[in-house]
Design a protein around this nucleic acid. Structure first.
Lengths: 202, 202
DNA sequence: GAGAACTCGTACATGGCTATACGAATTAGA
DNA sequence: TCTAATTCGTATAGCCATGTACGAGTTCTC
């Protein structure tokens, strides 16, 4: 009875199919959070039953896709140096992962429609923390404005990234200029109030 | 047969029901763009069949709701003085109609899922223009930054308003402080490059 | 090469939303 | 008051998505 789910070895093609399905799910849900399991399956190039063979329900699939996406994002952010000058670090963060963040937002939206809210919060708490810390540090150093709460500043970043991603997806915005627009806008929005010239760090 | 739709007089209660349905549609779709016609009907306090008696399809209902909402927004903006100092005008615009704009965005999202894209564009072209003109004027006067395209600046405004509205709806953001946050953030984002210290109003 | 794992089609039950048709009860308006 | 407009329940049909069951064919893995 000590092995309820233990399938230690899976056939190679099976694992490969799981991979294809997850990638397709991320792509599809990133485009439209309400994509059906059928569409994801055919987008992955597998039969619908294969999908249900690997994921017991659409809910499980969405959760798996979100988890993978957040892990991927976490890895990317791991490789970005966020310790230096706060504005520069924010810029680097945006440059390196705005698309990933945008995708995550969309998949997260899909998750919110099907998963219990607590589960969702748990899943994306960690990556969220990275951004939060950076903003907090910037505020403490006087590089970012202090007259608006950190949570709001973080939200603004997400709003803009998500909006830009939507417009890029629908062809209204050129993806090559998007990161620059985002960075310049967010940095300006985060800038300390100009009236009183605080000693802005260095 | 020369009068296919001509119903010159409608009974008072009928018109009143149409009113209730439209208001309910705006409220429901503003909260969740995928609200079903059934939910809208019971939210309006009328039977489902009454709804179909007044609107031939859900699509027609969505279009009617969007049209009414945009008209309402247009009226509100009509009463706002946008001719003075550009930042102040933008601030007044946000203060007076951020909630309306947010609702419009949500209903517009519902419309995009059911209406032909051209129709949607046509409908909200006019209110959009008001914001665009204000931004253009601000740029021309040097009150707003010029290094980012006007369309992008307008988009940013929408991103933030829509995001804030979502967070207010889900209880993550206090509705009483939201307009202030939005205004201060957008004004900072729109500010001209900081190197030259313009006298930014007060 | 043989057995097991895996794929995937078909079929089916379920549930939700849209939309139509019919008809009875209600109600406004003259 | 009387008539016609209006409401609104029920029934019906179609479409689509989810999820389960069965079974035959294919392909890995030993």
């Amino acid at each position: 009875m000590s092995r309820p789910v233990a399938k230690p070895v899976r056939r190679a093609d099976a694992r490969q199919n799981v991979e294809k399905i997850l990638e397709a799910a991320i792509a599809c849900l990133g485009r439209d959070p309400s994509t059906s399991a059928i569409q994801i399956a055919e987008c992955a190039g597998v039969g619908r039953m294969t999908l249900y063979g690997h994921f017991p329900s659409r809910e499980a699939l969405v959760e798996a896709a979100l988890t993978r996406l957040l892990d991927k994002g976490d890895q990317v952010l791991e490789g970005v140096d966020l310790t230096g000058d706060a504005p520069a670090a924010l810029c680097a963060l945006i440059e390196s992962s705005w698309l990933l963040i945008a995708q995550s937002s969309a998949v997260l939206e899909a998750a919110q429609a099907t998963l219990p809210p607590t589960r969702v919060r748990d899943l994306h708490a960690k990556p969220e923390q990275r951004v939060n810390n950076l903003i907090a540090r910037g505020q403490a150093e006087g590089a970012f404005r202090d007259d608006l709460p950190r949570t709001w500043l973080a939200s603004v970043l997400h709003y803009i990234i998500k909006g830009a991603a939507t417009d890029v997806a629908s062809g209204r915005l050129d993806p090559t200029v998007a990161p620059r627009f985002i960075s310049e806008t967010v940095l300006a929005a985060y800038a300390p109030a100009p009236s009183e010239e605080r000693s802005t760090g260095r």
